[in-house]
Design a protein around this nucleic acid. Structure first.
Length: 293
DNA sequence: CCGCGGGCCTGAGAGC
DNA sequence: TGCTCTCAGGCCCGCG
């Protein structure tokens, strides 16, 4: 499911019920997600106050007063729901609006704010890991990540430099989390479309021979900013699994111009192209061959 | 080091 | 109705 806008939407939903609140009880309902839970997973969470809830790329990070950080990744199908605890008398019991989903509720945090925070993940590509804040710099999961696409350091110059020596397509480069961290298949397709750049173009063409950013690089960075900001504002894109923590759907999928729109007319003004689909590095690419060059 | 393809899982939808 | 096949928003790992 989730790319940066979906993860950011989830972060904003969890923040009010987690930040400044204590984890009274934590439950894991199986021994693993993508990886086995650490043996001391529960012990390091229970009794801890969450001092901050942040995001890095597609990771959620809960800072704990102990100095630990709870790292959470939604994989392909992970989602969080915020539910109201039904009563102090029955810890572990909470109201669930979609009872048929209970089979994939794998983790629950019972917060002192009165919220039950439930992690659901049918495919279990998601995972949670607790790391010490001191060891943050060395964390292998985070170590190679490139810049935040909405951060100050990500600009045309930086993008051009990191693409300059790449031997791969622009599509593959943008999906590479070492180049820019947080984009996935949907937003790469949409950003390329909005900047009229072909997904097949060589990534290295974003830089001149002197390593300066081309106008293409500037257009692309600007399209990435626009599409991510609009998607966050829309609560993300709900194709299958993504939900806001309230259970509401995101609605940016209605604003897709190419993703999942094979065969439809190109929306670029004055273009009479048709949206096409092909496979690049094992993933579907949607684009308009007419106006993306 | 880099780029690519396989594999990890479950579920939805298409086609027969 | 039900089976089989394909595909899905991500990313680690091993190979060449």
């Amino acid at each position: 499911m989730p790319e940066l806008p979906e993860v950011e939407t989830v972060r904003r939903g969890l923040q009010p019920v987690m930040e400044g609140s204590k984890i009274l009880k934590a439950e894991t309902r199986r021994k693993d997600l993508r990886f086995p839970f650490q043996k001391d997973f529960i012990a390091r969470l229970e009794g801890q106050t969450v001092t901050g809830l942040g995001r890095r790329a597609k990771y959620l990070m809960a800072d704990l007063e102990s100095g630990d950080v709870l790292l959470m990744h939604l994989g392909m199908s992970g989602s969080f729901r915020v539910l109201k605890e039904e009563g102090q008398a029955k810890p572990g019991q909470f109201h669930h609006p979609r009872s048929e989903d209970r089979a994939h509720d794998h983790v629950v945090f019972h917060m002192s704010s009165g919220a039950a925070v439930v992690f659901n993940d049918p495919r279990r590509f998601g995972y949670m890991k607790i790391i010490a804040r001191k060891a943050f710099e060395d964390e292998p999961l985070l170590k190679g990540l490139g810049p935040e696409p909405l951060g100050n350091e990500f600009d045309a110059k930086m993008l051009a430099q990191s693409c300059a020596n790449k031997k791969t397509s622009l599509k593959a480069a943008l999906l590479d989390q070492r180049v820019v961290a947080g984009l996935g298949n949907i937003y790469v397709c949409e950003a390329l479309f909005r900047s009229h750049l072909s997904p097949r173009r060589l990534a290295a063409t974003l830089a001149t021979k002197k390593g300066e950013p081309t106008d293409h690089a500037k257009r692309l960075v600007s399209a990435i900013h626009t599409v991510l900001n609009q998607a966050i504002k829309a609560g993300g894109s709900s194709l299958r699994d993504h939900r806001q923590t309230s259970g509401e759907l995101g609605y940016f999928q209605h604003s897709f111009q190419v993703y999942d729109r094979e065969g439809e007319k190109c929306q670029t003004a004055g273009c009479n192209g048709i949206v096409r689909r092909f496979t690049q590095n094992g993933r579907s690419t949607f684009w308009c061959p007419q106006c993306q060059k």
